[in-house]
Design a protein around this nucleic acid. Structure first.
Length: 486
DNA sequence: TGAAATGTTGGGGCG
DNA sequence: ACGCCCCAACATTTC
């Protein structure tokens, strides 16, 4: 054995071996490695993963442990306050350094700062590597002074910057490894019980880096050329469905960026799929935008960006909230969306907009309640994306959809689920309803009776009335109304 | 990354 | 043949 002290590589939201700057740097040092994942028992995380997130986390950790074992450095699982776990590990092994990739979330960065100072007292250094975003949020506003709050200019600026670094390969395995006692993953009990179990998620997903890479490849082969339009169809797999992989870091955003833009860069003239590929990169841009926003505005998860929305006349109605949560609003597209999330842990992006709009505008319930439900139910639940998305749809965020932009669930259904295939998949009660009425089953006389027998509820609210009610609520917020000089 | 209301236009039926 | 009306189709405005 060498005398060189080992390096602790702390895995957080980067459950992969490729394009892992902290891991690569540790390997390059030639020291023995201690890869570790810590389950924080100190409740210091104000946004611990929800139920679906924990399911994903468990399985992705299992996959990471397998690939690290094969690669040559077994993964260590330790439970406890993060600073204490790292300190103890450093003491026992003689490690003088902890390497990790930065997670761009305000609470996480604050904790990292504290932990880093704590470790420094014991002579242990902490090194942070970047990799969870395409562009550094602080560098982007350097010289400008204030964050971008409108997506368009933000993205134009991003595209004008030098391209993000090329992703790193899986590093060669270290020569020496240490074997230390580890918790078993099962003892962490990450996956909570739920009445219907988790089989339907397991049938949908295989968490882990290998499957994530496969998804990326499949998307490039099958859907990237038609993404611009195909992504809108909720009844077809036109999207990449990489969001959980990106959240948990099974793929780095740089890997996705480079894989998609490579075909643009290497083609002399623009091909048929170029617009689609740019549209996809733009979606990575929204992820980037949300992450930067949360970094600059830590209140984003709880408080409306535009303070006047604090006065919005939201309702409090536990029954309506429960109807929405469990897919019993009587609007098939909304209900299919909510049941898709329950069944798969994922929801099509367009359905997220429709379902969120319905909660906020048709039901006038707080967007924070909707965000909390999504947080618990989505395997890709991401604080920045979830918060920014809800604020966007609620009209109170930066660069938000105007509040008066109210989705009509019937029209959205006709346009993006024209055959009713998605509705029939998730709402078996409506399987017999004819296609012309599938998105408004209350209008189908014969089928309506049938649906009633099967227990599918009538509409919770009338669209036209709900729309007018929402517009009135919005009008009550206008500055002129407050000033009393309408 | 809407939808509804309102306005405009142009073709065709018809007296 | 001509003007009138209807209304679908499209465009613009408003919420």
């Amino acid at each position: 054995m060498t005398d060189a002290p080992p390096i602790i590589v702390w895995f957080r939201r980067d459950l992969r071996l490729s394009d892992h700057p902290a891991l690569s740097a540790a390997v390059q040092s030639g020291r023995p490695l201690i890869p570790v994942v810590i389950l924080d028992s100190g409740n210091s995380d104000p946004w611990p993963p929800g139920a679906a997130g924990r399911w994903w986390w468990h399985h992705s950790l299992a996959a990471l442990a397998r690939s690290l074992a094969t690669w040559g450095a077994p993964l260590l699982l330790r439970r406890g306050p993060e600073a204490a776990v790292l300190t103890e590990l450093a003491t026992v092994t003689g490690a003088r350094a902890v390497f990790c990739n930065q997670v761009v979330e305000p609470w996480r960065q604050a904790h990292d700062h504290t932990i880093s100072e704590h470790l420094a007292q014991g002579g242990v250094g902490m090194a942070f590597f970047s990799g969870s975003v395409l562009f550094d949020p602080d560098l982007m506003i350097a010289g400008r002074g204030r964050p971008w709050t409108v997506f368009g200019p933000f993205w134009r600026r991003c595209l004008a910057l030098p391209a993000p670094n090329r992703p790193l390969p899986v590093p060669p395995a270290p020569a020496a490894t240490l074997h230390l006692a580890s918790d078993t993953l099962d003892s962490w009990r990450l996956v909570p019980d739920r009445p219907e179990g988790w089989d339907s998620l397991a049938a949908t997903w295989t968490p882990g880096e290998a499957d994530a890479q496969g998804r990326l490849t499949a998307f490039l082969d099958d859907h990237a050329d038609d993404y611009e339009h195909g992504r809108d169809r909720v009844d077809r797999p036109g999207t990449a469905q990489l969001s959980p992989c990106l959240h948990w870091g099974e793929l780095s955003v740089r890997q996705v960026w480079h894989a998609v833009s490579a075909s643009l860069d290497h083609r002399p003239e623009s091909g048929p799929g170029d617009a689609s590929r740019r549209a996809f990169l733009r979606q990575l841009g929204w992820r980037e935008f949300s992450t930067h926003l949360l970094h600059h505005f830590p209140d984003l998860p709880t408080r409306p960006f535009h303070a006047r929305f604090e006065a919005f006349p939201t309702r409090r109605d536990a029954e309506d909230l429960a109807a929405w949560q469990h897919g019993r609003t009587g609007y098939p597209l909304v209900d299919a969306a909510m049941r898709q999330m329950r069944t798969t842990g994922w929801m099509h992006n367009r359905l997220r907009m429709v379902a969120a709009s319905f909660l906020v505008k048709h039901l006038l319930l707080p967007w924070q309640d909707g965000a909390a439900w999504f947080w618990d139910g989505l395997v890709d639940a991401d604080l920045a994306n979830n918060s920014a998305g809800w604020q966007w749809i609620a009209g109170c965020g930066t660069d938000a959809a105007p509040f008066f932009r109210i989705f009509n669930p019937v029209l959205q259904g006709r346009r993006f689920d024209p055959d009713g295939a998605l509705v029939r998949q998730y709402i078996p009660e409506l399987a017999e309803v004819a296609t012309p009425q599938i998105h408004e089953p209350w209008r189908a006389a014969g089928s309506a009776a049938h649906a009633a027998r099967r227990g599918y509820p009538p509409p919770l609210v009338d669209h036209r009335l709900a729309r007018e009610r929402a517009l009135a609520a919005f009008r009550s917020l206008r500055p002129e109304a407050e000033a009393g000089n309408i």
